[in-house]
Write a protein that binds this DNA or RNA. Sequence first.
DNA 1: ACGTTTTCTGTAAACGTTTACATTTTATGT
DNA 2: ACATAAAATGTAAACGTTTACAGAAAACGT
Lengths: 352, 352
Amino acid sequence: MNKNITILQIAEESGVSIATVSRVLSGNVPVAPKTRARVEEVIKKYHYTPNPMAQGLILRQSKTLGVIVPDITNPYFSTLFTQIEYFAHQAHYSVILCNTSFSATSYAGGEHEKEENYFQMVLDKKVDGVIIAGGQIDLCEVSEDYRNALRHLASSIPVVVIGQSLSDVPCHFVNIAQTKGVSIAIHYLASLGHRRIGFVGGERGVVVTESRLGAYHSMVESLSLDDDPELISTSDYYLPDGYRAAKKLLDLEKPVTAMLAMNDNIAIGTIRAITDYCLRIPEDIALISCDQFIDGTYLTPRLTALDRHTEELGLYVIQLLLCKIQNTAEPALPDFSPNLVIRESSGKKLSV
Amino acid sequence: MNKNITILQIAEESGVSIATVSRVLSGNVPVAPKTRARVEEVIKKYHYTPNPMAQGLILRQSKTLGVIVPDITNPYFSTLFTQIEYFAHQAHYSVILCNTSFSATSYAGGEHEKEENYFQMVLDKKVDGVIIAGGQIDLCEVSEDYRNALRHLASSIPVVVIGQSLSDVPCHFVNIAQTKGVSIAIHYLASLGHRRIGFVGGERGVVVTESRLGAYHSMVESLSLDDDPELISTSDYYLPDGYRAAKKLLDLEKPVTAMLAMNDNIAIGTIRAITDYCLRIPEDIALISCDQFIDGTYLTPRLTALDRHTEELGLYVIQLLLCKIQNTAEPALPDFSPNLVIRESSGKKLSV
DNA sequence: ACGTTTTCTGTAAACGTTTACATTTTATGT
DNA sequence: ACATAAAATGTAAACGTTTACAGAAAACGT
């Protein structure tokens, strides 16, 4: 709508060539103080900033990043994004957020856009780098199409992926061990005297679920807890799924005394289910959640949960990406071991 | 990292001029079918897509939109964003998400970036349009700086703002009445026999809070309910705030029999507080939330809440913005009246 | 005052497109 | 077959920058 003011007009108004204007803008090139002052004044007067498209064209960079997540409505991803965006902005990058799939609740029909399309999109957009979190990378079996698309993307621009490493794909994979948290939680429950611990929620075929299951099993073995396939009740990651999964556990002949919920949504569903069976938390059933996005302090009961350090992860991946783009030294990998925040829901030591 | 393939190479390989290639790309210009086929083949072979910077430079558009929100971690904004991004993507726009402030919990220190800076940023980025939701616009008193910045932004590109109208600012303001929902909720509670209804949470000086307070008061008057300033317990919008605000109401000498929580977070905090006082919901206190982002079906108790139609709002604003950009007819304003989803927490008719 | 170095500034090409205009090719009517 | 109209294609300018290179001005030593 408004006339766009260009470097040429700045040049004319300050009586120099466009090259000089460009030089005062760039800052690190010698230009006579007197000239610089004059030009800067005119720039200020018109609030001039260089057209990023023209700049991008010649500099071959867009100062734009892509972030690809499945569902920004999920607190895990929005927390991650918040960190990414903050530090990107500090470094004068803006970020395009790509939301590849709708959560079933947020859009009638639960439509999905193929992630591969978004890979191509950010490529076409000429973003300077991409961060990918969640989606197909979280599946144990990644499709060949996805693999190829990711390889293609990563061979053009720096890509940081939060998830399992894929061989032959030149991304920087940041893989957070999901096993430690589960071990800590189970260990804690066992220390309180629990022998039958239910595993609630988490989709099969998803890396997190499977590795957590692995940790669950090895803890069950090493602590000689009840080893019963019925104690595993997986489901999707949303609230209603958790509700159903928990019910399955409550219908067992030999009841569980503790449950490990795969995330806060599952935990809320589980609370609902336990209450429906007129049981109390933690008196009848102890509960621990593997995430803490909702502040467990204020849930009823106050929820014991694992803190996954999502903020630190976000900071790390954006730093990593910027380093890759600017070819500087990579930051050290922080310690992402989760810690257990103990509240009400896990209860006290069982009296035998 | 990879060699970029340009229109020139496509032209050479298919033995035509770059103009012809450009024409087959554009689609709506006559080009001999034989030529078109040949060129298309080469394009496909190289997966060529035009450089958006070069295109943007000459076409004076970036096919990029800006969305400015205070906190993407808040389900209201992430739901809104999901819709916006989906339809933007369908229309071949990508969207830059600007998160102007950190929620106190998501970043140590709770830093804030001035929204005005982001206004300038999207302007510098040459986005084709902007959607603004939340932030200063939600304050009853908008600063002059903000006003000026917004005016400046809106005089350059199409801007859709979800919030109160500001005179002399050429934005399209979408203002959702917050009063209706409150009226419905209070009316319902009154119909159950409640006379002392508490107002929990919501920051003073914020438009939503004040207009809801207005609705509250007029309902209290028209239904001759207890009119007591002590029944109003405002606070911030986060969970711990709701907890504190609810406690204040519970400490009253003459207790409330029902509470209206300003959103789900407040409601969860309120549940926690009521439970801490060893009171039951809804038997002792009925509760209604003004939002429903968490699926109230699975909370304990199942939460009665107002559905604000946030998805529809998202769809509407993105449609609106695209229409403004493309100069097509505006969509009709949908009916955003919230509806009350009645569940457990509001209870049954009081026995007198 | 004059050559020489140093510092500053201007010219012009390049980035990869789109499109008005000119030109060539093809189709049409006789 | 030929003039003419219609259709397809090519040429070149333009979009707004950055920067290598060249040229001008200032600073310096004698």
